[in-house]
Amino acid sequence: MREFTYTITDPEGIHARPAGLFVKEAAKFDCTITIAKDGKEVDAKRILGVMGLGVKSGQEIVLKTEGKDEDAAMDALCSFLQENM
């Protein structure tokens, strides 16, 4: 399992548009992917859950990948976060 903590810098937080792009990116991988905020963990491949976290700018999220392609998923999602959020 791999884990990565990231602080959202986008002034609008994870709003609908980036959440959609993020979920699409996550769906490309077979492994289990979750994101969590303040201990509440959701499936990163489900948009309603990701939006439901209500992550705002300046807040920390913990990204976890677990499974066969966990390394590739972590690399792709980390760079996605850094570029878009």
Binding site: R17, G20, K45, R46, G49
Partner: peptide, 19 residues
């Protein structure tokens, strides 16, 4: 694209497994 994206998000919501 920026404004059209909401319809893409709507499609994803419909496919959301929780939903």
């Amino acid at each position: 694209q920026a404004h059209a994206m909401i319809f893409d998000v709507h499609q994803m919501m419909l496919d959301d497994l929780d939903y």
